[in-house]
Computed example of a mutant assay.
Amino acid sequence: MSAAQTSTGAILVLEDGRTFHGESYGAAGETFGEAVFNTGMTGYQETLTDPSYHRQVVVMTAPHIGNTGVNDEDPESRRIWVAGYVVRDPARRSSSWRARRTLDEELREQGVVGISGIDTRALTRHLRERGAMRVGISTVESDPAVLLERVRASGEMAGAELASQVSTTESYVVPALGERRYTVAALDLGIKSMTPHRMAERGLEVHVLPATATLDDIRAVGADGLFYSNGPGDPAATTHQVEVLQGALGDGLPYFGICFGNQLFGRALGFGTYKLKYGHRGINQPVMDRTTGKVEVTSHNHGFAVDAPLEGTSTTPYGEASVSHVCLNDDVVEGLELRDPEGKLKGFSVQYHPEAAAGPHDAAYLFDRFVDLISERKGEA
Rank of each mutant, 00 (worst) to 15 (best):
T6F: 02
V13S: 09
E23D: 11
Y25C: 00
G26T: 01
A27I: 00
G29C: 09
V36D: 14
N38Q: 07
G40T: 06
G40M: 05
M41G: 11
M41F: 06
E46S: 07
R55L: 05
P75M: 12
E76F: 03
R79I: 07
I80C: 10
R88L: 09
A91I: 02
R92V: 02
S95I: 07
S96C: 08
E105P: 08
E109Q: 15
Q110R: 15
G111Y: 11
G117R: 14
I118T: 01
R125A: 00
R130N: 15
A132M: 15
A145N: 10
E161T: 02
V166R: 01
T169W: 05
V173I: 13
P175T: 05
E179D: 12
R181Q: 12
T183H: 02
A185E: 13
A185F: 06
A186G: 13
D188K: 03
I191M: 15
R198G: 01
R198V: 06
T214V: 10
I218N: 01
V221Y: 11
D224T: 04
P232L: 11
P235A: 14
A236F: 08
T238I: 15
V242R: 05
V242D: 02
Q246D: 06
G252Q: 04
Y255C: 05
F256Q: 04
C259E: 06
G261P: 12
T273C: 13
Y274L: 03
K275P: 09
H280D: 09
R290E: 10
T292L: 03
V297H: 07
T298S: 12
N301L: 10
V306G: 02
D307A: 15
Y318V: 08
G319Y: 12
S324C: 04
N329W: 10
V332S: 10
E334D: 14
E337Q: 11
E342A: 13
K344H: 14
G347F: 09
V350Q: 10
Q351D: 01
A363G: 14
A364P: 06
Y365A: 09
Y365E: 03
L366V: 04
L373G: 09
S375V: 00
S375Y: 01
R377D: 01
A381Y: 04
